[in-house]
Design a protein around this nucleic acid. Structure first.
Lengths: 342, 342
DNA sequence: TTGTATGCGTTATCAC
DNA sequence: GTGATAACGCATACAA
């Protein structure tokens, strides 16, 4: 019992060859008698196939990787919730990589594809460098990138139209009569940071509002720094009447600051986030947010990867998820819970 | 470039034997000239070692598993946030298992230990069956269980004194002058459900309060069902003046219901949760919660497992994390943010 | 220091 | 149907 049983052990106990053991274990046609002997020996010895040996032979690990910046962000969590069961049902295990938004780390993960410990990878690079693209091209296993990627990149791609998303939010705030619409963004050298920055300027222009650089503050994508950035903005633009945040976490930080500053949300300052995480309905007031379809993107990515694993030679595909504005009380006072008409 | 390079390929290109290649790659003493040739060939060919072959030889996968009921619960997220970097730094990858609180699934994971695709496992069983204990005893790789486990189980164990935690909360509510203290719990056949149920009764008794079965409602551990259970409770006990919830998610559901019912928190009903998740500070009002040290438990589990991997023969250890009451506005009106004295 | 040869546990291809 | 036997890619004991 203390020795790790292998097919050789089973073969000895059952008095057959290892080939027969392997056949029985893999459901290939065998005489009933042989099958019985093998199965009972296997059960008795507590045999479990060794995955390393199996992988070496089969050239498949039955694992897929998921690489994101930080497991602490609920957006990624929403994706994992979709991805995990899909792969589990398909017989794959999920290997997690939290890269801390570090490019070198992401490249490491891509290099890891060559080790063949995963059969495929879903990745969300926060910054997309030439090195990423080189590795994509050289990769020996299928990759799905969530987030925009150049047209000719040899990877499947799930994207969301964050430009349209930002526009939805800005138009909504404008429609509420707000004219001093601030913007708290994450780093401009990140894929989402850059896209949302451009989209913000564009949306203002489309509405005939002037673009005022003083209305933007840049921090990172987390609550604490979001709070600091919002505080800076509030300090410099006292007559701010609306605030768009590049993600929900930033918006939560902004809500903290506005509350401490005694500004009423939404009456004084309307606040909108992006990602529409679970937490939006928990915040006070509940947060208006642009859904970028995290769950859908996760599901799409998983399905693309699964398909590609079975259909290796097909051309790269792009799936786009449409953003959707979810209006809650942080911009619309009539939606404050508990204050509806009975 | 299209053929997967192996040490054999490198050996050919460098004009040396595969043994030399292996030595160079593993930093064993070699002539400088040989080393140079091998390294340059390896780089040129884009060689990456095959992890299956390496695992087969070394009998180590450099992966560790983390099995929890549901990746959607922020408690587990808090743990992963601690666990992941610790193992990453130690050269291990993290394989995730979301078992849906399904015992059969958990047993599968334990059986998977035999496949040797992970070198160790951190597990949080929601229910602990005899089958679990059998598998623990038979396991061929170290296991750390988060959550209580019998004394003689051959696994490391990280626990929290949830009994003391419940008592802290009940005493706090009692100290606020509340006497009708309801309890919304998760399933009684789960480890935490059973423990918290007993602890609740005990704490009441210690305070000389009568135990009224009507004051308890059982649902599951999620927000939606937490809301329904709280609604049932409110319906049957109109004079409820305090509510202890078995975890934060349940408490969030309860807050939703109380708000819709027009009950002021904490003035009419004081609400406390357990786990002290990140989300507690996001809720409105911010949630008083019993911290069960999720981060500490995650860290402790990771460190125990890492230690056991290097020190295979040592006896099982138990680490206990003390609960701590974190008082916020959902029980203490003086702490409502934005209403402090300036 | 280097090369040859063997084994890790499987699967798969042969003859029998 | 079944049993030898050869890979899979790597690490290493041993011989040179």
């Amino acid at each position: 019992m203390t020795e790790e049983p292998t097919i050789t052990t089973i073969a000895q106990h059952a008095g057959v060859s290892i080939a027969s053991v392997s056949r029985v274990l893999n459901g290939l046609p065998t005489k009933a008698e042989t099958e019985r002997k093998v199965m009972s020996a296997a059960r008795e010895l507590g045999y479990v196939p060794n995955s390393a040996a199996r992988s070496l032979k089969s050239r498949r690990s039955n694992q897929i990787g998921f690489a994101m910046a930080d497991i602490g962000n609920p957006v990624y969590l929403a994706m994992i919730r979709e991805i995990q069961p899909i792969f589990k049902a398909a017989g794959y295990r999920l290997v997690l990589h939290s890269t801390d938004a570090d490019t070198a780390d992401e490249i490491d993960v891509l290099r890891g594809l060559g080790e063949r410990y995963i059969d495929g990878l879903i990745m969300i690079p926060l910054r997309l460098t030439g090195e990423h693209l080189t590795m994509f091209a050289a990769a020996r296993a299928p990759i799905v990138v969530i987030g925009s990627v150049p047209e000719d990149a040899p990877v499947d791609n799930v994207r969301t139209d964050s430009r349209a998303g930002v526009r939805l939010a800005v138009e909504h705030l404008h429609g509420l009569g707000r004219r001093r619409i601030g913007f708290v963004n994450g780093p401009l050298d990140t894929v989402p940071g850059a896209a949302r920055s451009a989209a913000y300027a564009e949306a203002l222009a489309a509405l005939g509002l002037p673009y005022d650089p003083g209305l933007t503050q840049v921090g990172d994508f987390y609550r604490a720094e979001g709070a600091r950035a919002a505080a800076r903005l509030l300090d410099r633009v006292p007559d701010l009447d609306a605030l768009l945040c590049a993600n929900d976490l930033i918006a939560f930080g902004a809500l903290d600051v506005l509350r401490r500053a005694g500004r009423r949300v939404p009456q004084d300052v309307a606040v909108a986030g992006m990602d529409d995480t679970d937490l939006a309905t928990l915040a006070w007031p509940p947060l208006t947010s642009v859904s970028l379809g995290s769950a859908e993107r996760g599901r799409a990515a998983a399905e693309l990867l699964l398909d590609k694993l079975e259909n290796t030679r097909r051309a790269p595909r792009v799936v786009t998820v449409e953003p959707r504005l979810v209006v809650r009380a942080s911009t619309d006072p009539s939606r404050i819970p508990g204050e509806e008409a009975p």
